[in-house]
Amino acid sequence: MTAQLGTAADTPVTPAGVSTPIAGRGQLALAWSRLRKDRMALLAGTVILLLVAIALAAPLIAQVTGHQPDEQFRQTGLTSAGLPVGPSREFWFGTDNLGRDVFIRVVYGARISLLVGVLSTVLAVAAGLVIGLTAGYLGGAVDSTLARFMDLVLSFPLLLFAIALVSVVGPSVPLAILVIAFFSWAAVGRIVRGLALSIKEREYIEAARALGASNRRIMLIEVLPNLVAPVIVYTTLLIPVAIVFEATLSFLGLGVLPPTPSWGNILSDSLQYYQVAWWFVLFPGLALLLTTLAFNLFGDSVRDALDPGATQLAGTR
């Protein structure tokens, strides 16, 4: 779908207010042009890009500040009573309870958050697409089995399950990704299934079938492209949920292992110190807030742009 977006972006788009007479533009291309005119989307998109840049450049930033994320500055970063020290020229965001630089930990935390957020969402969407599409298109016994399975997953008490699983297997980043993906795919799956159910009744599908196309070909070539728009919307909204879920798991000690920083870890550490070290809780909290806000706003804009109300989607090929 990124390739399609890219192609769409190459077509010239005129400024807002002027209707373009170019015919035959795909729905995604239209959406892209709407998105580019949305200032909120631009702002949110910029924040997201900035976050990605910060996450990628974390080692460089660490070099500039001269502080590593798990380096403990016991002499300069702690009072003798062991309390964190506030923001200063040396520690821009202050230090944590072990005398570590909160700034560099928040920067490195972005890596974990984005990694877990994006990876688990991609996994969830992929699984949701495959299973939802299969269930919706094939119907019958396959559908009822898979649909009940999705219901089952959706009805799981996720935190309890995560706590139980982690206490058996032991916390780690891959496990966090898998857990989050496992609890997110079913929602995607349900939406995809519903759409697939209605799309497969369309005349052009029947036409394809009459022409002798295989089920696989119909699913991939005829049905899947029509799911792209709603799935993109869902993906952008799923990422912030996954990021918060990761932070929650780490906060409970079930996600990323210390001393690797994640926003949830830092917030969990800061809990004991919120009364004496506001910076310790504020900066990771702001980072988390800003990220989820940016993704949510961007997701909203994408949804508006794609206008999922209009389900009369033409094939975008």
Binding site: D70, Q72, L98, S167, P171, G253, L257, P258, P259
Partner: peptide
């Protein structure tokens, strides 16, 4: 994985690292 224990653990981990000892952390209730 409770109270001050994670902090103590990370402090000891950092000390041992300086001495060339790699520590694998196993959090438990």
């Amino acid at each position: 994985n409770a109270g001050n224990h994670p902090a103590v653990t990370q402090s000891v981990q950092a000390d041992l690292k300086k001495c060339g000892v790699t520590v694998k952390l196993i959090p438990q209730t």
